[in-house]
Simulated assay, not measured.
Amino acid sequence: MSTARMVKIKIWSTNVKVLDDFVGKITDIVKKTGVKMNGPIPLPTKKLRIRTMKLPHGEGKKKYEKWEMRIHKRLLYIAEDERVMKQLIRVRIPPEIWMEIEI
């Protein structure tokens, strides 16, 4: 009994539109080759929040500015296939996307 090994691809970005376009390119490549794929699985969005005091605050009321950065993540499982991996290597990765591949 043989089990197909899967490649785990984790992709994350602060820009959700660019992330979805990039994941769409990967899924198109995988569907064209006919390889088994699970995903894209959306993972929980990480929210980084920073509160800073507005300047000049002087002797009056303290006023704060709130900043937030959201990190969107997607997870893909693709069956190991040499043709697909060669095509994935050729895909241009936008500068605001980070990608981690585990074999």
Rank of each mutant, 00 (worst) to 15 (best):
residue 97 I to H: 06
residue 89 I to L: 11
residue 93 I to Q: 15
residue 92 R to A: 15
residue 78 I to Y: 02
residue 85 M to I: 00
residue 84 V to E: 02
residue 86 K to E: 09
residue 28 D to R: 14
residue 35 V to T: 09
residue 52 T to A: 11
residue 61 K to H: 08
residue 59 E to F: 13
residue 58 G to P: 06
residue 23 V to C: 10
residue 84 V to K: 01
residue 76 L to P: 01
residue 34 G to S: 07
residue 64 Y to V: 04
residue 82 E to Y: 06
residue 85 M to E: 03
residue 63 K to Q: 14
residue 48 L to V: 13
residue 69 M to C: 07
residue 56 P to E: 05
residue 98 W to A: 12
residue 26 I to N: 01
residue 25 K to R: 15
residue 64 Y to A: 03
residue 72 H to F: 15
residue 47 K to R: 03
residue 79 A to Q: 04
residue 96 E to R: 08
residue 38 N to K: 05
residue 74 R to I: 01
residue 49 R to C: 06
residue 26 I to R: 03
residue 80 E to D: 12
residue 39 G to N: 05
residue 92 R to E: 15
residue 28 D to M: 08
residue 23 V to T: 11
residue 60 G to T: 12
residue 54 K to M: 10
residue 89 I to R: 12
residue 60 G to P: 00
residue 50 I to V: 14
residue 62 K to W: 09
residue 69 M to T: 11
residue 80 E to Y: 08
residue 59 E to D: 14
residue 100 E to H: 03
residue 91 V to Y: 11
residue 61 K to Q: 08
residue 56 P to M: 07
residue 34 G to N: 06
residue 42 P to F: 05
residue 71 I to D: 01
residue 42 P to M: 09
residue 30 V to K: 03
residue 87 Q to G: 04
residue 61 K to D: 04
residue 59 E to H: 14
residue 42 P to V: 08
residue 98 W to P: 00
residue 31 K to V: 11
residue 42 P to N: 08
residue 90 R to G: 10
residue 70 R to K: 07
residue 98 W to Y: 13
residue 94 P to H: 11
residue 69 M to G: 02
residue 91 V to R: 10
residue 102 E to K: 13
residue 101 I to G: 02
residue 90 R to I: 04
residue 97 I to S: 06
residue 93 I to Y: 06
residue 40 P to L: 01
residue 28 D to G: 12
residue 71 I to A: 04
residue 82 E to H: 08
residue 91 V to T: 13
residue 43 L to V: 08
residue 91 V to K: 09
residue 73 K to C: 07
residue 99 M to N: 00
residue 62 K to P: 04
residue 77 Y to Q: 00
residue 49 R to G: 05
residue 24 G to C: 07
residue 101 I to S: 04
residue 66 K to M: 14
residue 75 L to P: 02
residue 35 V to S: 01
residue 103 I to W: 15
residue 39 G to D: 04
residue 36 K to E: 13
residue 100 E to A: 02
residue 41 I to Y: 10
residue 44 P to L: 01
residue 81 D to T: 02
residue 41 I to N: 10
residue 66 K to P: 04
residue 88 L to A: 06
residue 30 V to H: 00
residue 100 E to Q: 02
residue 76 L to Q: 01
residue 92 R to N: 15
residue 65 E to R: 09
residue 49 R to T: 11
residue 50 I to W: 04
residue 69 M to L: 14
residue 33 T to V: 15
residue 42 P to K: 10
residue 96 E to V: 10
residue 45 T to E: 09
residue 57 H to M: 12
residue 103 I to C: 08
residue 82 E to F: 04
residue 79 A to L: 03
residue 60 G to D: 12
residue 53 M to V: 15
residue 94 P to Y: 06
residue 31 K to M: 09
residue 95 P to Y: 07
residue 31 K to N: 13
residue 74 R to E: 02
residue 94 P to A: 07
residue 81 D to L: 02
residue 81 D to K: 00
residue 96 E to K: 11
residue 43 L to Q: 05
residue 44 P to C: 03
residue 74 R to N: 01
residue 68 E to H: 03
residue 25 K to E: 12
residue 54 K to W: 07
residue 71 I to T: 05
residue 62 K to Q: 13
residue 29 I to A: 03
residue 56 P to A: 11
residue 29 I to C: 00
residue 56 P to T: 13
residue 69 M to S: 06
residue 99 M to I: 06
residue 64 Y to L: 12
residue 76 L to H: 01
residue 58 G to M: 13
residue 24 G to A: 15
residue 62 K to R: 15
residue 62 K to T: 14
residue 69 M to P: 04
residue 44 P to R: 05
residue 76 L to M: 05
residue 27 T to Q: 09
residue 93 I to A: 11
residue 31 K to G: 09
residue 28 D to N: 15
